[in-house]
Design a protein around this nucleic acid. Structure first.
Lengths: 162, 162
DNA sequence: TCTAAATTATTAGCTAATCTAAGTATATTC
DNA sequence: GAATATACTTAGATTAGCTAATAATTTAGA
């Protein structure tokens, strides 16, 4: 049991070590970075009929990055004419982001191409195993969400003096 | 089938989008970055009894990063006294990296703590599902290895003009 | 009601982890 | 022996984040 757990742990460790190197992580898409595309996705999907657009704070919460990070990404997107900023009428501190027509088109294309890319992966893995993988990854996230969960956590603090 | 494939694709897309944000990715370990630790792992495991130490080019190939990246990481590790550089006797262009005693200790601790961390995840997922996950991820890597495989690949080149 | 505290977003400046391009030194090949 | 190729380093850039400090506005409390 001990032995088998260790070797499973090794396999998982190796797998997770490789993950951040998987191809699409580093490639710009339609002249925009992956992070920028994520913001576009977020604005497109988060917006509701009654109040179109998303506040910076909402984007920040959903993407789980700080608001300065969102601000910085929006700067690029606004310069390229993909989003517009507007001060919220009911709370003048807040800024509401909406997609321009161009932004909407780019987002649609990006979603389409991402899905197409994952569909090719699904063709390779098969529908069933793909779903299994999605399930397992969800569980992993759930675990990390619940456990604050750094490798380092309690383990490493204070071990700086080796 | 089409519908179900799309929704599987969406699930996988969301999962992979979250992956690079999983906790341990960003945290320094024993005062060293994850990348530096990877180099240490690599030198420790790559070294063979007959020729201890690893060349920069070997590390570069194994970790799948460029040699300037390796050089830079080694700079930090050398400054902290974890590795030593030495010119290869049989090829004076090459540089052989070996762990110092301190480097060996740090590496051992890092391996131990990483494995411990993954064993906690395995406790949560269960042995069987953990192995399943490792298997599925291996398949994913295999797919991407075979297919050159960016999202963008043929799709995006030339689409910069939207 | 007016001040103190909280919230929202931005700016400035930092770090990590990569990359490419260019340069130097050494090997290899023809 | 000259041309080419290989191994590494340096310099400088990019992406994706972060924290700290600041400005503007809102909310709460006395």
């Amino acid at each position: 049991m001990e032995t088998s757990t260790v070797s499973t742990a090794q396999r998982l460790m190796r797998a997770f070590m490789r993950l951040n190197r998987v191809a699409w992580h580093q490639n710009p898409i339609a002249g925009h970075t992956l992070s920028e595309i994520k913001v576009l996705f977020c604005v497109k999907h988060g917006a509701r009929a009654d109040s179109p657009g998303m506040k910076v704070s909402e984007i920040s919460r959903i993407l789980d990055v700080t608001s300065p990070t969102v601000t910085q990404l929006l700067k690029g997107l606004e310069e390229d004419g993909l989003v517009t900023r507007r001060i919220d009428r009911t709370d003048r501190r807040a800024v509401v982001i909406t997609l321009t027509e161009k932004g909407d088109m780019v987002t649609k294309e990006a979603v389409g191409d991402f899905l197409a890319s994952f569909e090719r992966l699904i063709d390779y893995l098969g529908e069933e195993q793909s779903n299994q993988l999605a399930d397992l990854l969800s569980k992993v996230f759930h675990y990390y969400d619940e456990n604050g969960a750094n490798v380092s956590h309690s383990l490493w603090r204070g071990v700086v003096e080796v």
